[in-house]
Computed example of a mutant assay.
Amino acid sequence: MPAMNAESSWDFRDNQELTASHAYNKEGYIIEKADFQYLELIKHDIERAFYEFPSITRKDVQKLENAHYSISHDQSNNLRLHIMKKLYRNTSFHRNYYNTAKNIIHSLCGNELAMQKRPGLSINLPQNRNDVLPIHADTWNGVSPFELNIWIPLVNCTNSMCLYILKRDNYKRRLNDSKELLRLTSDELFNELRDDLTWIPIEYGEILAFDQSLPHGYSLNEERDTHWSINCRFKGLHTPYWDKKLGEYFMPITVKNCTRLGMNYSHPDNWI
């Protein structure tokens, strides 16, 4: 197969795809507008599950960003697991998630897709060290580099509420280091890379598509509001899967007709 790192006369992507791809390739991420009607359905499902959590101390909290008024630090992970269990009882949540980000997924990843079976929910209460997500890249742990992570904030995220990432140019520059960085603890690695990291401000109504092969994570939330976000991986159905397998971690969601027919094809051996 020809090298795919440069455009050629055989690159038939339209201008919209090329523009999105150039931005994604330069920074390692791109921010796009969500399809708001589907985003609101996602948020409604999460809010309903939140208010059904038995350990909530105050039922009058009307905004997700004020969740810390009704939940203790030691209950944040239990709340997260409770909500995830509620969300994934059927595929309506997954369908709404896909439709929320459909345009950018198709531009960057294609339209014959597999989707992560259980998207990940993040709830980061102010000053709760248990909610910190240590710096990592998903590909360091058996995740395919062919995946696209669609990260959706459910509240406005600024400063320490943001996802941070090592932008692609900084990552390429630091790859020349010979410091055996992956042998460091996560805290040591964070401190080593901290000056090169970028915290990405984003508002509710926007979506972040990012390359999960770049180091990223959440630091301690030092703001006054609770961070809420959800992330889900998409990939081309026929691309390599590594440790996260189709039918286990991923489910096919947009299998086209020729693929379906080809999978069921039987050669007429009896005619020979």
Rank of each mutant, 00 (worst) to 15 (best):
C232L: 09
S219P: 00
N231R: 15
I230C: 10
S266H: 01
L214C: 13
G236R: 13
C258V: 14
S219N: 05
P268F: 05
D243Q: 15
V255N: 04
T239D: 06
H267I: 15
D211E: 11
R260G: 00
C232G: 15
F210N: 02
H267V: 14
L220N: 12
D269R: 03
T254H: 11
E222S: 03
A209F: 12
F250V: 01
P215E: 05
Y218G: 07
N257S: 12
D211C: 13
T239I: 05
G217D: 09
H238R: 09
R224D: 09
D269V: 12
H238D: 12
T254W: 06
D243T: 15
S229H: 06
H267Q: 09
D225T: 01
K256V: 02
P268Q: 09
I230E: 08
Y218Q: 11
N257E: 11
P252W: 01
D269S: 15
S213H: 13
K244N: 14
L246V: 10
Y218D: 02
F210P: 08
P240G: 14
S229R: 06
D211N: 15
R233I: 05
T239K: 14
H238C: 13
Y265N: 06
R233D: 12
N231E: 15
F210S: 10
H267K: 11
K244T: 13
S219M: 04
K245V: 08
H238Q: 13
R260P: 06
T239Q: 13
G262A: 15
L246W: 03
S266M: 00
Y249M: 02
D211W: 04
G262C: 12
Y249F: 13
T226G: 01
N231Y: 04
T226L: 02
Q212R: 13
C258G: 05
